[in-house]
């Protein structure tokens, strides 16, 4: 209950921040609506009329309460521009972005965890040095840059380009995979580097513990010592960081989707920010916040399940 309360407070803070920031930032949504030439010709009466049509002429508290009321009623509002609803955008684009996020998470664990364990088991060896160098490299390289390189390499070497419109998994799994695999792997490798470093340091700490020495003294084979005794105890911090890394995945997906030309939610958010499409921006930011907070609450709750010593009151 306490965690749910904190989560609600956090989301309230996010909603207030995004609402206020979007209204105080300079920039006129009517430039995108009317175009530069139309905007230059606009009369004050036209402005008043259009702003009223968009619901932007009411006092800010009224606009804010109306927005919260709409969310409570399940109405996520409409884009200022093309008339499509935010809910439609989420339903159409959300699955692609979600797939990319999940794939990134899987890749980060599949790559990061074995690398971290191997590094920890042979510290300061050549494989450890290589793994550490690679992990620093993947942390340092911006995902959108790597994404663009991959797109260009595939194009110029193989004349290949992934499908240019959204194909959902349930319509054509193969084409869908072609869309999500690039951004998923690029995001996953960057997060995998963090996981590798975290799991290495945790494993190094755990394998010098008494219970691991006892397990070895019992004559257990090394892989059993690692998998059954050391790893479960080293995983807790890695799970914690995975929750935090989800924030990086969500944030990173905005740029990486752009680099790969994937029309996901991240890309919709970029366009909405440029166009000052306030309703879309505030609802998508809130959605991202809900996902981030929700995953972190789940991570917190999973501690109790993973480590019986932890109990929440």
């Amino acid at each position: 209950m306490r965690r749910a309360f904190y989560a609600a407070i956090t989301l309230f803070g996010v909603s207030l921040s995004v609402f206020v920031i979007l209204r105080i930032l300079p920039g006129d949504p009517l430039v995108a609506i009317l175009g530069a030439e139309g905007h230059a010709q606009m009369r004050p009466t036209d402005r008043a009329r259009i702003m009223a049509d968009l619901g932007l002429s009411d006092p800010l508290p009224v606009q804010y309460v109306r927005w919260l009321g709409d969310i409570a009623a399940g109405r996520l509002g409409k884009s200022f521009f093309r008339g499509d609803t935010v809910a439609e955008q989420i339903l159409h684009r959300g699955p692609i972005s979600a797939e990319i996020g999940v794939l990134a998470l899987i890749v980060s664990w599949l790559v990061g965890l074995p690398v971290g364990i191997l590094s920890a088991l042979k510290p300061n060896s050549m494989p450890d040095g290589l793994a550490r160098a690679l992990s620093v490299m993947f942390i340092a390289i911006p995902g959108f840059w790597l994404g663009m390189l991959i797109v260009l390499a595939l194009l110029f070497w193989f004349g290949y380009k992934a499908p240019i419109v959204i194909v959902h998994f349930w319509n054509n799994p193969w084409q869908n995979l072609q869309i999500v695999v690039g951004p998923g792997v690029v995001l996953g490798l960057a997060q995998g580097a963090y996981i590798a470093r975290m799991s290495r340091s945790c494993m190094l700490e755990v394998i010098s513990e008494d219970f691991v020495r006892t397990a070895r003294a019992k004559g257990l084979r090394e892989w059993l010592v690692v998998m059954r005794h050391a790893l479960p105890n080293a995983l807790l911090p890695v799970i914690t960081i995975s929750g935090v890394l989800l924030g990086f995945v969500l944030g990173g997906s905005v740029a990486v989707e752009q680099a790969f030309g994937v029309p996901g939610l991240g890309r919709a958010l970029v366009t909405a920010v440029i166009e000052r499409d306030i309703i879309v921006v505030q609802n998508l930011v809130l959605l991202y916040a809900v996902i981030f907070v929700g995953v972190n609450v789940l991570v917190d709750l999973s501690y109790a399940w993973l480590d019986p010593r932890i109990r929440y009151g």
Partner: peptide
């Protein structure tokens, strides 16, 4: 500045030089 800000600033005269 972003495009929407540029036209705002240009229309309001908040610049010395402005490129577009």
């Amino acid at each position: 500045v972003q495009v929407s800000v540029w036209f705002d600033e240009a229309a309001a005269g908040n610049f010395d030089l402005a490129i577009s």
